[in-house]
């Protein structure tokens, strides 16, 4: 931190104000912890009005959801030719019993056993698609780290006509770090050649969208929202910076440094990462005088493979001015 930064820090950190209400929240929480009033599985304190209201809202939301499910499932059952939902369930159970001893499919498609990094803490393998008539089961193997805050994950699957085949909401958190998810896909047709699997975190934020090519048996993973969690961001930046610097001669790089501003797109396809990024090359003088903003910004694409420890360059394009 230079002198200027220290001055700014001193200026902003002189602010020590916390509203009384927020301080009370801290005090009340600490008091509950000290008095062992918080059960680890039930953190609601009914003596606290706000908390009670929250709980009431949750109960109301759950009740409303049940009502919607009950009405919706009856409508669905009627549309399928059943008197009500109980007849439909009965029929499903009856059919399941019949297929217990059968091999689910003779058209299974083994897709891949290569792990895809979903976030820094979550890896996923799309192992297999088992098909029978117009239903299919997609087997995923998920590996999570304990501290991960994105879990439990939810999924959506679409076919090549973009029709929803599967959607999960409010999945339960798995106790194990490695577990298998089986997604029962509806309306599977033999004409289905591609599936799109979307993976969401517990806040409903799309973490990754993956295209599964059933004919080629390949997977293309794509991050959304310019969030790159596939590999270590720090290492990736270093690697791209080094490879970009190599594009220029020593004279061209004299008193200059490459700064990677943003990695705005990253694809993973057939064992290769394709990364699009923007960078600038300010001179030391520009950098020191904080005139970095005025330097030209370039865009470029690099392709590389990774063996979990190193990145190996496959191809790098010639940078273009970013407009």
């Amino acid at each position: 931190m230079d002198e200027e930064d220290k001055k700014i820090k001193a200026f902003v950190s002189s602010d020590k104000k916390i509203p009384e209400k927020v301080n009370k929240t801290f005090d009340s929480f600490i008091e509950q912890v000290e008095k062992n009033q918080i059960l680890e599985n039930d953190v609601i304190d009914e003596n606290n009005g706000t908390q009670f209201l929250l709980r009431f809202r949750k109960i109301l939301a759950v009740a409303a959801s049940f009502l919607i499910i009950a009405v919706g499932s009856n409508v669905y059952a009627k549309s399928q030719g059943y008197e009500n939902i109980f007849f439909l369930i009965k029929n499903i159970i009856y059919n399941e019993e019949k297929t217990d001893d059968e091999i689910f499919s003779d058209k299974d498609i083994v897709i891949s056993y290569k792990s895809i990094q979903i976030t820094d803490e979550i890896e996923l393998q799309i192992n297999e698609l088992q098909i029978k008539d117009n239903t299919a089961k997609l087997y995923l193997l998920v590996k999570e780290q304990k501290e991960n805050l994105d879990s439990p994950l939810n999924y959506k699957v679409y076919n090549n006509e973009n029709l929803e085949m599967y959607s999960s909401k409010n999945n339960k958190k798995h106790e194990e770090n490695i577990y298998t998810e089986v997604l029962n896909l509806k309306n599977y047709k033999d004409s289905c050649t591609k599936l799109k699997l979307e993976i969401y975190n517990n806040n409903g934020v799309l973490l990754k969208s993956i295209i599964i090519d059933l004919l080629e048996k390949t997977i293309e993973a794509r991050t959304e929202n310019q969030v790159i969690n596939k590999i270590s961001q720090i290492e990736l930046n270093k690697f791209i910076k080094n490879e970009t610097e190599k594009l220029y001669s020593k004279d061209e790089m004299k008193n200059k440094k490459v700064i990677i501003i943003d990695i705005y797109d990253i694809f993973y396809s057939n064992g290769k990462y394709i990364v699009k990024y923007i960078f600038m090359m300010p001179s030391d003088e520009e950098f020191e005088k904080d005139k970095v903003q005025e330097t030209t910004i370039y865009t470029n694409t690099i392709e590389f493979t990774s063996n979990n420890e190193d990145f190996i360059k496959v191809k790098i394009d010639t940078p273009e001015v970013f407009e």
Binding site: E4, V227, I234, I261, D290, V292
Partner: peptide
């Protein structure tokens, strides 16, 4: 967000 983005935002903020 990428480290570069943090740096460029910090430069703007500064």
């Amino acid at each position: 967000i990428p480290k570069g983005t943090v740096k460029s935002r910090l430069a703007r903020a500064r």
